[in-house]
Computed example of a mutant assay.
Amino acid sequence: MIKSELKQGEIGDFYWGYINRINDDADLIETLKDNTKEFSEFLESIPKDKWDYRYSPEKWSILEMIQHIIDTERIFQYRALCFARNENGSLPGFDHDVYVLNSDAEKRKPADLIEEFKCVRESCLFLYKSFSDERLQIIGNMNDMNATPRAIGFIMAGHALHHKEIISNKYL
């Protein structure tokens, strides 16, 4: 599945900001593999003294941001699975700020978060490899908007790139 095959209506407008960070000719599985490796290597390069840093008191630390990415990927994988299995009900949204406040990320070690990200993404890859092209295109409803598993896959990769840019520009 190539990113350029995505159509308007497969995901809400907000999420195209993440998807558009990916090249049009990008293959979904290869994108997730490459993104996992590149993002993990980027995280491993962050100096230890920066993981607790906040560039403003109300902003998340890098520890919290990586926990947010992990939580979000788990939720998006669940949504993709539900849609691929023809779930008819609408899936609820989630408040990422509440999740971060209740994550205890500040008690985590950077190496553990990096390893957890890799494991969650490995699970994601197995999930997406199991989907046929037909299953990737099934439209479901999440947070009162339509979505397909294939759009969700590209969102996850773009979401990591979004946060990599924030970390690079505001934290390092």
Rank of each mutant, 00 (worst) to 15 (best):
E58W: 00
L43S: 06
L113K: 05
E41G: 12
I29W: 05
A26M: 04
K118A: 02
V100T: 15
D49T: 15
W60A: 03
D104K: 11
D24E: 09
I114K: 07
D95Q: 03
V100R: 09
W51V: 04
E73Q: 04
G89I: 06
D104A: 13
I75R: 12
D49V: 01
S90E: 13
H68T: 06
R108K: 09
A84E: 03
I70H: 04
S45A: 15
K48T: 08
R54G: 03
G89A: 14
S40I: 14
P92L: 14
L91N: 04
E87L: 14
K50D: 13
N86S: 14
S61D: 02
A111K: 08
S56T: 05
P57I: 11
M65T: 14
Y99V: 07
K50S: 08
T36Y: 00
Y99G: 00
P92R: 12
S56H: 07
E30L: 14
P47Q: 13
V100A: 10
P110F: 03
N86H: 08
E73W: 05
A26L: 00
S56G: 08
C82F: 13
F39L: 13
I75S: 12
I46H: 04
I75L: 06
P47G: 06
S61F: 05
A105E: 08
A26S: 07
E87D: 11
K50N: 10
N23S: 11
Q77Y: 11
P110E: 13
K50E: 11
K59G: 01
D52L: 08
L43R: 02
K118I: 13
D34I: 06
F117I: 01
I62D: 15
W60K: 12
D25P: 00
T36I: 00
T31G: 03
T72R: 06
S103W: 05
A84D: 06
D52K: 10
T31I: 07
H96P: 12
R108W: 01
Q67Y: 15
D24V: 10
K59N: 15
Q67K: 07
Y53D: 02
H96M: 15
L28Q: 03
A84P: 03
K118W: 02
I69D: 02
K37M: 08
R108M: 14
D49S: 07
L63D: 01
N35R: 10
L81H: 13
A105G: 02
T72W: 05
I114N: 07
A111D: 02
A111T: 11
I69Q: 02
I66A: 07
E44D: 10
G89P: 00
E58R: 05
P47A: 13
D71H: 09
H96D: 05
Q67G: 09
I66S: 02
D112S: 14
L113Q: 14
A111F: 15
T31Q: 05
D95H: 03
F42L: 06
Y99R: 01
E73D: 09
F42D: 01
R85V: 04
D97G: 10
I62Q: 08
S61V: 08
T72P: 04
S45R: 08
D24T: 12
E44S: 15
D52Q: 11
N86Y: 10
